[in-house]
């Protein structure tokens, strides 16, 4: 399989930062707040690869920096330092060397994001279909009938009732909102999808069906995904490889079954043990 993403040395500091930030935070210091300047080191020195069609899990508790990581890759946040190369067919993009318009183009055409909070991914002022239309309109589709048909198909694929496509997602259940978000993310058939705690806070049965949907989509379309979660069950079900983060650092990475059955780091062992 071809390389899709090459993340090297990604760091993100919230706050003004100081020269001692990195040395005074991390799992060994048991904090992500710099004692000298009070900045939060959300991620430091994160490196990993992603192949086309692969699902990579990023696991960690809240505050581990896992969400910051995908938000940085999706240009929601700018990194403090680091380099990310995105290989897209013949093209190669140096993500953080791009201008705002190029970044927006990638966001719309080549990436998709599903947020834990549907308010971040959906515009509640327009209908479910309108949300998908917005993404299609961003990619210069300008035929109303075609936009409508594609929106209808996408919502049908994610099991949202077509007769509800003209309602605001505000009226939908949490699970339905996530389905609309997934449909929206898939609208431009991106080769790379970011999923940030997409099932957190949903009923178990709803969670299960969303996870099934994600797997089906992955098999149908071969979409590469980065799945951020604190839920080992989600990781076990979706991810082939997994990265474990704590206080902004990658403390362990490996094949998912190996991480779950033979974790090498004390923290991962505790995490796995506590979930069984």
């Amino acid at each position: 399989m071809n390389q899709m993403l090459e993340v090297r040395n990604l760091s993100k500091i919230h706050g003004r930062g100081c020269p001692r930030c990195f040395d005074s935070t991390g799992p060994d210091m048991d904090t992500n707040i710099c004692a000298h300047c009070g900045s939060v080191v959300a991620a430091h020195g994160v490196s990993f690869d992603l192949r086309a069609g692969e699902i990579l899990g990023i696991m960690g508790e809240s505050g581990s920096g896992k969400s910051t990581l995908v938000k940085t890759l999706f240009f929601d946040e700018t990194p403090t330092v680091g380099e990310v190369l995105f290989f897209d067919g013949e093209r190669q993009w140096d993500l953080f060397a791009l201008n705002a318009a190029e970044q927006r183009w990638l966001r719309n055409h080549r990436f998709g994001m599903v947020y834990q909070n549907p308010h971040l991914g959906l515009n509640f002022k327009v209908s479910a279909g309108g949300n998908i239309a917005e993404r299609l309109l961003m990619s210069d589709l300008s035929h109303y009938g075609e936009i409508r048909e594609r929106a209808r198909r996408l919502l049908a694929r994610t099991e949202v009732l077509p007769e509800r496509m003209d309602e605001s997602p505000k009226k939908f259940s949490g699970g339905m909102q996530q389905r609309v978000q997934i449909a929206k993310a898939l609208a431009t058939q991106p080769p790379l999808l970011f999923l940030d705690e997409v099932t957190t806070g949903l009923d178990l049965s709803v969670q299960a069906r969303i996870l099934d949907l994600i797997l089906e989509i992955q098999q149908e379309l071969g979409t590469a995904m980065i799945v951020v979660t604190h839920d080992l069950g989600v990781i076990r079900l979706l991810a082939g490889r997994t990265i474990v983060m704590k206080y902004g650092r990658v403390i362990e990475s490996g094949l998912t079954d190996q991480i779950l059955e033979d974790p090498q780091h004390a923290y991962t062992q505790r995490l796995v043990a506590s979930s069984l």
Partner: peptide
């Protein structure tokens, strides 16, 4: 201003889409 600069009028078009729907 950013939207104008990048020629990003998708949300305006979405409003037209919603008009036609309604």
């Amino acid at each position: 201003k950013t939207m104008h600069g990048e020629g990003d009028y998708s949300r305006l078009l979405t409003k037209l889409y919603e008009d036609i729907v309604q």
